[in-house]
Design a protein around this nucleic acid. Structure first.
Ligand SMILES: [Mn+2]
Ligand SMILES: [Mn+2]
Ligand SMILES: [Zn+2]
Ligand SMILES: [Zn+2]
Lengths: 150, 150
DNA sequence: ATCTTAATTGGAATAATTCTTGATAAGGAA
DNA sequence: TTCCTTATCAAGAATTATTCCAATTAAGAT
């Protein structure tokens, strides 16, 4: 059971609240994201979803991801020119991309700090969205590199 | 004069320091970026550069932009799935993308604050790069929207 | 002036994503 | 249930940004 029942319930309501339908495809895509929270690309979602819904098409995976992000159930994660990744963690957080092993890690916000306080806004900007991404080497890969160097 | 002489000098040295050549094409691309600091895309750079170097190709513009970023003279700016933009401002700063008029604004870092202090890193991450982008409506577009509403 | 290697060009190739169109399926009304 | 309307899906074509490739040109050293 990838998605806890109460989350599934909430997703259902959100979808229905928009006059949309919770189809097998949409549920399966959402389940994949909730099951392995490793920020898969659309193609990775596609291959995982086919285990449950073998007839699904890649176009439908893109459609479902669009719908889910449109409903605010999922967030799109971008990093440089790489394919988009998808994340069901709705808490405010940044992302770390390991250049060595490719993993993506969630970085939670430290309490009482806000991105808006770090940068200076010259005027009355109306912020609707922001995204923060770091890259480098993750703890595992950093340790490995340090070991091989000495 | 798009690029101040001392900057031009610095760019020359940086390029030469890497064993590369400062060609007409590379200088023209750098001049375009220094001249209008509005974060143009590769295609926009291409159309502007052709005024000075009419025979330049788009592939060369991409090559030059690659070289300049490789030398650290220019930074690549990404935002969602949009084409990459280029910025010659080497100070640490974030970007604001106006969804209404398309302009990109530099947001300087407030003194004594660092992105690394805002998010929590669970372990020994080795940060080599980070990028912060905001989107919404810029002051001009926000004012226009407020006026038309009342 | 010649030589060696870097840089440029134009076009083909690639990769992610979006679009189009016809088939299916869901849910409401009769 | 059956019919009707509309949302959704599927398959493949199209689009877009970017990269790759192979042949030519230009720099700069000898
Ligand atoms: Mn995440
Ligand atoms: Mn900038
Ligand atoms: Zn790693
Ligand atoms: Zn604006």
């Amino acid at each position: 059971m990838a998605t806890p029942a109460n989350q599934n319930q909430k997703a259902d309501e959100t979808i229905h609240g928009r006059g949309l339908r919770m189809t097998d495809q949409r549920r399966a895509v959402y389940d994949v994201l909730m099951g392995e929270r490793d920020h898969p690309t659309a193609v990775e979602v596609f291959t995982r979803v086919r285990a449950k819904v073998p007839t699904i098409s890649l176009a439908t995976v893109y459609n479902c991801l669009d719908t889910l992000t449109g409903c605010g159930l999922v967030k799109t994660v971008t990093h440089e020119r790489e394919p988009a990744r998808y994340c069901p963690n709705l808490e405010e957080h940044a992302h770390f991309f390991c250049e060595s092993c490719g993993t993506v890690t969630d970085l939670p916000l430290r309490s009482r700090k806000r991105a808006e306080d770090v940068w200076e806004f010259p005027g009355e900007f109306n912020i609707s969205h922001h995204e923060v991404s770091f890259s480098g080497t993750c703890p595992k890969c950093s340790a490995k590199a340090a070991k091989s160097k000495r």
